[in-house]
Design a protein around this nucleic acid. Structure first.
Lengths: 210, 210
DNA sequence: TTGATAAGTTAGCCTTTCTAACATATGTTA
DNA sequence: TAACATATGTTAGAAAGGCTAACTTATCAA
């Protein structure tokens, strides 16, 4: 990852052109983001990792933001995949499946904290991007689909959208408080998985009467 | 707010010494933070607002972080006060009181978004400060106290700490998704108050059987 | 082969944080 | 009240990042 495989010729000589600097910069930025956080991330660092001058990125991206957008899009895709894999393993439309989705959300937040913060954080310049919004929406649709399935299977009342929003709210809160280490100050050693499971049971609708 | 009342003599001449530059810089920074967000906040701007050189702050604060810490401490104090006022208005130890606390939390997040983000966000350099941690803990204790009262009044089971953590998690999630405008993308026009009230009922314990 | 274009580079501007060296006000003490 | 010590300002400037302009080199297509 420290150097693109296409930055040299087969004989080993340095190339003037990189090969795929665009993706190399995305990779380098993603790596630095995960390592150091968005706060301490500089494009200049990414250039050093990729082995190019600090002016090079501007041939591929309008500005720093454009790179971050690309990383966020890929982030939503990875989160979607993990989430779907988790629910399939536990059973679609089951309460365990729904819980597994929440845990996948939190696992993603823990492992790719900086990307997660870009995905849901306050940088509107990133999130107002049409493509970014699309990938985000499609990610949330997976949740609604599972809740709908759950309601059908269990003959339970309730609007899947509202239930999904409620679950998302709880899980997102847990993810944020976890990665920001806010639990540490008031309840170190808290069992998140248990809390998620308990909340899921309480927030999901119960079987219809009759 | 744009100029300290003590930066000029009574005759109107400019003073060399400011009077209370420390607080003037905190005020200016808080104002800019609210207006522009932490991302776009620069100490240099605060200096311009206060009418001093960019080197002046370093006579009062070790660095930029020290100013932010001061602002965060004052933020916890304000949030605590609002929260207590809200619960007293609705009745201590009642479900409406607990809901009101949650709504106060969210109102604070909406009105002082940038300060809220500093209080619970990812800047560990700020949050690891002993004084900051103290003010944060004392804020959370108010919630536990209300849950304890609620459990006693309603003869309900459950550990107040765990219930408080659960409610905090939900309300914090709602606050974050609201201020980051993440709901907009999947459910514009969502009724947050209703969602909070519904969640509170579900997450609070029910009356003991027997 | 040539010419257009894509994709690098260097140099430099502007901004920010922070430090060093200097200047001025303030207030305590002899 | 003079004078020193200290607190609190200032200017100048270093280091780093984002971004642009002007220039250079590689690549591709006619």
């Amino acid at each position: 990852m420290s150097e693109s495989p296409t930055s040299r010729t087969s004989s080993g000589k340095q190339r003037y052109h990189h090969g795929d600097l665009r993706q190399a910069l995305i990779d380098a930025s993603h790596q630095l983001l995960v390592e150091k956080g968005a706060e301490n991330f500089s494009l200049a660092d990414a250039c050093r990792v990729a082995g190019v001058s600090t002016a090079a990125p501007y041939k591929h991206f309008r500005d720093k933001l454009e790179i971050l957008k690309a990383i966020v899009e890929q982030g939503f895709d990875r989160m979607s995949q993990r989430s779907l894999a988790a629910v399939r393993a536990k059973g679609e439309g089951t309460i365990d499946g729904v819980i597994a989705m929440g845990q996948a959300y939190i696992a993603f937040a823990m492992e790719e904290t900086a990307v997660f913060r870009l995905m849901f954080g306050h940088n509107t310049a990133i999130k107002r991007d049409e493509h970014v919004e699309d990938t985000g929406r499609s990610c949330f649709k997976n949740v609604i689909a599972q809740i709908t399935l759950y309601c059908e299977k269990n003959e339970a009342d309730g609007d899947p959208l509202h239930i999904a929003l409620s679950l998302w709210t709880f899980v997102h809160g847990a993810a944020c408080l976890l990665i920001d280490e806010d639990y540490e100050n008031v309840a170190p050693g808290i069992d998140i998985d248990a809390m998620i499971a308990d909340a899921a049971i309480r927030l999901l609708p119960t079987r219809k009467k009759g």
